[in-house]
Amino acid sequence: MGLVAWAGSAWADVCVWRDPERTMAQLFPEARDYRTAIHKLTPAQATRVATLAGQPLTPDETQEFNIYEITDGKGVIGKVLALAGPGEYGTIETVIGIGADDRIRGVYIQRIRERQRAAVQSDAFLGQFKGQSLTPELKVTPPTDAGKPAQVVIALVRKMLAFDRVLSTAP
């Protein structure tokens, strides 16, 4: 399920991305502004994303996906993507920043309700994503005491990289 950014609005929506701009500034400190690119997926694109991600898409994910293009006032310096996946105690809401070189700038967990959340949110785990890209395969070692939720985060990051790869190229 995707996160829906509503610019500070606060009605009951389990998947609202609560602080999109603060997260963007965190992932791209040099950011000046952003543009929301709403992508309506074709069936072929959805299949390609699932293939690259190595996992099926949820029904919502096959319909549309938003990519937030970050600018520094002169041009696009990167992208921010957000996605939520199922944890044992609720959805794990994950945001990533991808630089202009298609490498991960940072991974941020907006909400995680798992017991092992500290290990999943640690720099020791999330820091491993920095500089990696969809190909070659992500090389990340999950924390020994948080394997299950960490695998959810890894799968979400892989899926977001696949969305970016497919939607950044012409259909």
Binding site: G8, A10, A12, A25, D33
Partner: peptide, 30 residues
């Protein structure tokens, strides 16, 4: 709503939930 660069400032005009207490981040309507 007029959104300033990266949302660091925003000006909103119309009908909205007032910025006070829990209401600012949590609407228990439903």
């Amino acid at each position: 709503q007029l959104k300033g660069p990266l949302g660091r400032w925003n000006v909103r005009a119309g009908r909205f939930i007032v910025p006070f207490g829990l209401l600012a981040s949590y609407d228990s309507e439903r």
